[in-house]
Design a protein around this nucleic acid. Structure first.
Lengths: 130, 130, 130, 130
DNA sequence: GTGGTCTAGACCACA
DNA sequence: GTGGTCTAGACCACG
């Protein structure tokens, strides 16, 4: 997992996004526990309050549920919720891009080209990490 | 033009993006003046300082050049700069979406579906405005 | 540090120049935090917004990086950037003087004399402060 | 004569500086008339008010004196005044550079190097114009 | 506590 | 009229 404290995206959001994507991808299944607050804070070398804030948001989304003294557990509908949320985020990012493109007078074919270009650049990133 | 003060994107950035897209679309051509600080502030019902901040950023990007007592003028390379910047913003939005999709374990075909869905939703918006 | 609000150079630029020189001189090293907005504003008796404006410029130059909730930190290449920028500013001031001198028909030997005179006057200032 | 309306130096100051340097260089001698307000405005394609402002400043400096209906004439002590003023401006530019250099921890030998570099760059400019 | 944004209103410099 | 700077004071987001 990669947390970059220098990015403009706040740390707590990076954490929440990461957990949500992980649940959506099926790494943590309904009923399973996600990493404990303190363990994750230690691993990422961030303030426990920051992790807490991320976990609060996930709980508000209904993705996980805290059981006192035990930890945070993925809810039964958690996987589905995570998938829906994640897909909505993806759609929203695409919509923002398309809206900006049309406003700038970029023609539809060129918008598709931009999409392909973005795709390739992401694939290159992924390969570089591996 | 639509400014939404409730969005997380700061107002001054929304204004800068709007002007940049406008220049990219050829509404204001090199050598022409963009709306005066106060005029735009009145129209958008925001503080002149906020518009100024947007204009400062555009000047830093080399899109416009300010002349005291006269106004802000689109530079010769302004149109090209605006197009490049705008396209980069579009690509970046797409890349963000794709990255999030892959992280959430969404399969490539479904990513394309999401893109098409986003496209349609934007088209619906545009029609609604017209 | 001396801020002179009566000078034609805007205060926020004086502050930015001061911090840049400080970083160039090695007072703040890469990874270290520069004074907080409010602290510096109090010390200089200026509005925090004015200091912020200076800090924004330094961040744009890549000298520092802001982390919300923590402060502004000198980047790894910050020291080098600061030195380069500072030296460029010095050269530019000299060039402006030389250009003015030649335009006024001052002969090269007298330009050198003027430079020596300026040097002595600065040394006198420095001694006076100490 | 070169007036650049896009520069940060205000136009009226560019004009005043130019005339002052010209007088210092002996192009216009005491008792001679400098170009008429309207003629210069036409030639430089600037607002006559702007030229007027430059001329007002020169008159305040005691460099020229207006004779109603005739024009602006270089005063008897005008040449000397212009030379003094010009030299002071040169010294001041040098002093600013030296002050910035010392503040940035640049060692005296390197300051001299910067001065030589500036000199060469100005000479290159001059040759390019010719 | 940190930085970031916004408003209201002032004053200045410039053409 | 134009843009540029500054203050005072508010509210928010982040750690």
């Amino acid at each position: 997992m990669n947390i970059d404290p220098t990015m403009s995206v706040p740390i707590y959001k990076q954490i929440a996004d990461y957990i949500r994507q992980t649940v959506a991808a099926g790494v943590y299944r309904p009923g399973e526990m996600i990493p404990s607050l303190r363990a994750l804070a230690l691993q990422l070398k961030v303030n426990p309050n920051t992790v807490q804030r991320a976990y609060e948001q996930l709980e508000r989304e209904g993705l996980v549920r805290s059981r006192k003294g035990l930890g945070m557990f993925v809810t039964q509908q958690g996987a589905k919720t995570a998938q829906t949320k994640s897909e909505a985020a993806v759609c929203s990012a695409f919509a923002r891009g398309i809206r900006a493109a049309l406003a700038a007078g970029i023609q539809p074919p060129r918008v598709l080209t931009a999409f392909e270009k973005a795709w390739e650049s992401v694939e290159t990133e992924v390969r570089a990490q591996a």
